[in-house]
């Protein structure tokens, strides 16, 4: 178990192996490991980012949906209001038209009633006069009492 000149041989082999490993083996292996670690880290961060983005987008979608819903509700409310307004207007118009027609009819009725009354009055006065004439023919001279007759006719 004594050391001898083999020391130098073994040290030489050792040195050559270390140098070879240092120059040719270690760098590509460690570069590959680091590259992979970097890729994994990048992938994880990208996934995180995508998740965040997704969340943002989902939030925006919810926001837009909410907006759209409120807008739709507003539009519906407006439409309902407008419809009610239209119905009211139509009702009002209808009522006004009815009233107008009613008034016109009433006016016509009144006019006709008036007319009829006037005619009736004329006929009654004519009849009265005729009656009176028949009565008075016997005792009253129509020419003498014309004034009286005319005033009577207008009063009737």
């Amino acid at each position: 178990m004594q050391p001898n000149a083999s020391l130098f041989g073994q040290a030489l082999v050792f040195a050559i192996l270390v140098l070879f490993t240092w120059k040719f083996i270690w760098p590509p292996l460690i570069a590959a490991l680091e590259e992979r670690a970097k890729r994994i880290a990048d992938g994880l961060s990208a996934a995180d980012k995508a998740k965040n983005d997704l969340e943002l987008v989902e939030k925006r979608i919810a926001e837009e949906l909410r907006k759209a819903k409120t807008q739709a509700a507003e539009i519906i409310a407006q439409a309902e209001k407008r419809a009610a307004q239209i119905v009211d207007e139509a009702k009002d118009e209808g009522r006004a038209a009815g009233e107008r027609e009613k008034a016109a009819a009433q006016a016509e009725i009144e006019q006709q009633a008036h007319h009829a009354r006037e005619e009736l009055r004329q006929q009654v006065s004519l009849l009265a006069i005729a009656g009176a004439e028949k009565i008075l023919r016997k005792e009253i001279d129509s020419s003498r009492h014309a004034d009286l007759l005319a005033s009577l006719k207008s009063e009737l």
Binding site: S6, L7, G9
Partner: peptide, 8 residues
């Protein structure tokens, strides 16, 4: 072999 160990 002691030479190998000592060399290293």
């Amino acid at each position: 072999d002691i030479n190998q160990g000592l060399a290293m």
